[in-house]
């Protein structure tokens, strides 16, 4: 996860990504100064609540803000040694759906209701494979539908999105995303709308396909359980900033940011005894138009002000090596608070 410029670049490297939207109510600071990297074959989990900037980050990687005149994207996005923020629309369009693809949360609204599922996948394939005949594309699509576990793919090819069940529709979405063998796959809450048993099937499928194709995966979710299942590395976002970043085992076992503690404290867990009370973060997330001064989390942080007034005035930098955290509390004190005050209540 280092961002050194010497040697080869990671497969995907995002540096100081900032995304702003100008609206009538003011400037929305959707993502501020975010840096991270993902290697081939690895999975990065991005966790956060609504409005934390996790989806905007992924849309920026795909260049989907380009058509929105009120969006301002700054920073660098390197995909396989190609810079995307300054690239032309045409160049990004060639990559999108080809080298990088996305699985959306709501497969019903992500599919076109007028075209059959098969036709939509064929279209995506032929855009990136010029000169391929319709028949070949059809064969490829049916293969893909079978690969993601859709029974009777020849028949399902001619059906519409609404004729699929939720789980099957999500599988079809995955087939659509994978038809061009993407090397970067971004999944934005791919299982949130699904039942747990179907969720388990889909996560399994994503894991298998990643093993097979060696793609880099970015998994965006609010569910810490899903992240723990799949991710090698984890980013925790709050108020448009990365507040904690590190290998999954470190972030789950030695979380360092008070917000991460709050997220873990909010979850009842089946692998532990029942707690008398959950220990969530107090209050509500900030508005991205009016972010609090200093650390964006300070109004909800039980430890703000422990070290003078820095939390109220100074934005904490994301500091640390492999496991980095943006918090003014000294590392020693964080460790002590986590082990003595937080961990016993999880």
């Amino acid at each position: 996860m280092s961002s050194t410029t010497t040697g080869t670049r990671p497969f995907l490297e995002v540096k100081d990504l900032t995304v702003r939207f100008e609206t009538d109510d003011g400037i929305v600071q959707a993502v501020s100064n975010s840096s991270f990297a993902v290697e081939r074959g690895k999975t990065l989990g991005i966790v956060g609540e609504s409005g934390s900037g996790k989806s905007v980050t992924s849309l920026a990687v795909l260049g989907l803000h380009r058509t929105r005149s009120n969006a301002k994207v700054a920073g660098e996005i390197w995909l396989d040694d190609q810079e995307l923020v300054t690239a032309t629309d045409e160049d990004v369009r060639k990559l999108r759906g080809g080298k990088m693809a996305m699985i959306f949360q709501d497969p019903l609204s992500a599919m076109h209701p007028y075209y059959t599922v098969g036709a939509q996948i064929v279209e995506g394939y032929r855009v990136h494979h010029k000169g391929v005949s319709k028949k070949e594309a059809r064969t490829r699509t049916i293969d893909m539908l079978a690969r993601v576990g859709i029974p009777q793919p020849e028949k399902r090819f001619n059906e519409y999105g609404h004729q699929f069940s939720g789980g099957m529709r999500q599988r079809a979405m995955i087939a659509m995303a994978l038809v061009n063998d993407p090397q970067l796959l971004i999944a934005d809450e791919p299982t949130t709308a699904l039942d747990v048993t179907v969720q388990a099937q889909i996560l399994d499928l994503i894991r298998d396909l990643q093993d097979e194709f060696g793609s880099a995966v970015i998994m965006i979710t609010h569910d810490l359980g899903v992240v723990a299942e799949l991710a090698d590395d984890v980013l925790v976002m709050y108020g448009g900033k990365i507040i904690e970043r590190g290998p999954a085992a470190d972030v789950f076992h030695e979380p360092q940011h008070p917000y991460t503690w709050g997220l873990l404290g909010s979850m009842p867990r089946l692998d532990r005894d029942v707690r008398d009370r959950l220990t969530p973060v107090k209050g509500t997330p900030p508005s991205l138009i009016n972010l609090p001064d200093g650390c964006a989390f300070h109004p909800r942080c039980p430890y703000a002000g422990r070290n003078g007034n820095r939390s109220f005035t100074e934005v904490p930098e994301l500091r640390g090596g492999v496991h980095a955290v943006a918090c003014h509390l000294p590392a020693e004190e964080k460790r002590r608070i986590f082990h003595e005050e937080v961990a016993p209540n999880l």
Binding site: A200, G225, A228, E229, F252, H253, R269, D271
Partner: peptide, 24 residues
């Protein structure tokens, strides 16, 4: 099956959870 499908928020138990999972 339902219980085994719930993801556990602990990467250290990931493999065990997956091995014990009953996929419907």
């Amino acid at each position: 099956a339902l219980m085994s499908a719930v993801p556990v928020p602990d990467p250290a138990r990931r493999e065990r959870a997956q091995r014990n999972r009953v996929l419907l």
